[in-house]
Amino acid sequence: MSRGKPNKRYTPEFKKMVVETMKKEHLSIYAAMQEFGINDHKIIERWERIYLEEGPEGLTVERRARRVSWWHGAIVSEGLQPYGVDRFTTQTGRSLSQPR
């Protein structure tokens, strides 16, 4: 069974070309999407923001991160163990499963 297409990755040179062409030719984001065959305006908006804040070299930085679910992140940040509610305690040390 097919899982669909993987996310397309663009080279830093391509990203730079898109942003600089937009500026040089006064293209809107939507016009650039059509010109370069990009399907999501958020991609170009992100490249433009990075280009303006960090310069062209900012487009060379790999920004993908491993996804962590909210629940896992909350457990790790509180130093809790993800086994069962009875093992969770509040900051005062009281177990969440005990009555007040």
Rank of each mutant, 00 (worst) to 15 (best):
M1W: 06
M1L: 11
S2R: 11
R3D: 15
R3E: 15
G4A: 13
K5C: 10
K5P: 01
P6M: 12
P6S: 13
Y10G: 01
T11M: 04
T11P: 03
E13G: 00
K15S: 02
E20L: 08
M22A: 08
M22E: 03
M22L: 11
M22Y: 05
K23N: 11
H26G: 02
H26S: 15
H26L: 05
S28P: 03
I29H: 04
A31G: 10
Q34C: 06
Q34K: 15
E35A: 12
I38E: 01
H41T: 07
H41I: 01
K42E: 09
I44K: 01
E45V: 06
E48Y: 12
E48D: 14
R49M: 08
I50P: 02
E53C: 09
E53H: 06
G55N: 11
E57M: 07
G58T: 06
T60P: 00
T60S: 12
V61F: 05
V61A: 10
R64N: 10
A65S: 12
A65L: 09
R67C: 04
V68T: 14
W70M: 07
W71E: 11
W71H: 04
W71A: 14
H72F: 02
G73H: 05
V76L: 02
S77I: 02
E78D: 09
G79D: 02
L80F: 11
L80M: 14
Q81R: 15
Q81C: 06
D86I: 07
F88A: 00
Q91I: 12
T92G: 07
T92C: 10
T92Q: 11
G93S: 05
R94E: 09
S95K: 15
S95E: 04
L96K: 08
P99V: 01
